[in-house]
Amino acid sequence: MKTESKLQKLLDSGHFAVTAEIGPPKHASAHGIRHHAQMLKDYVDATNITDCQTAIVRLSSIASAVHILDCGLEPIVQMTCRDRNRIAIQSDLLGAYSLGVRNLLCLSGDHQKFGNEPSAKNVYDIDSIQLIYLMRRMRDEKLFFSGEPIKEHEPRFFIGAVANPFADPFEFRVARLEKKVEAGAEFIQTQCIFDMERFERFMEMVRERGIHERVHILAGVTPLKSWRAAKYLQTSVSGMIVPDDIVERLKKADDPKREGIEICIEQIKHIRTIPGVHGVHIMAIAWEEVVPEIVERSGLYPRPKVE
């Protein structure tokens, strides 16, 4: 076992993992995230902590992770390449490890244009694949990004990456996933899946290349609150595909929120039948409280215990 991550233990021992996502607040109180952590801790194996997602200034993901750990839930710290150069990334990740964080998710990050600081300078000193590679090397070869040796106490993260089967060029998406695995990614969380057919085609290509045997793939799902939310994702978020029938189903529903939960549960049940998928990642954006019900009704509760 390379790391002390509980998530890794679960995945490596063949369990179907469940992760969720907690978005830190736009203020300096941890009250909300602690509340969500308490609520989720028995229902998910670990939770992502987003890193100023959509480039909106929020409480830091590493600080949030410490609150979440304190509540007894395992955090997956997201680290984007948008805001930090290689000096800051290494420093922050050494700090995160020292505070007990064991899971790391490496991403490019949404462009600052979308956030509340559109005139900020972006960094992108390194990209997500380089970050994966350098953190893997830091752990396995005890080297800083520069190649300078780490004498002792190298951070030993369980390293994750993201994959978006809905972005283009579609035929290169699986190749790029493989590139991330080559770089050192050990688990993958996908973009929210609404177009199940396309995801199945993606997984087929993944299996053809045998990638599912080298990495744990967690399929991303998002419960939708309304047809407007679905329409927004469909039309305004690049790299998303939302089929019209989902929009229509929510539009026709008497209780759209209920319907959104039902759709999500159906999706998870379906995803569990797709060979090569090792878990599900539930991104209930600003709707964390529905996660326990979704997990329970998808037949994923109780969660397995590992030591």
């Binding site: 390449c81 948008r82 490019s108 990050g109 949404d110 462009h111 244009k113 979308f114 972006n122 992108y124 990209d127 997500s128 694949i129 380089q130 993201v162 994959a163 978006n164 809905f166 972005a167 283009d168 060029p169 290169f172 790029r176 590139k179 973009q191 690049s238 790299g239 998303m240």
Partner: peptide
Amino acid sequence: SKSILNGPCGGSQYGKCE
């Protein structure tokens, strides 16, 4: 727009940047 050396990122769709 992100100077990525190992692209494309997940924001690429229909040939356009996010």
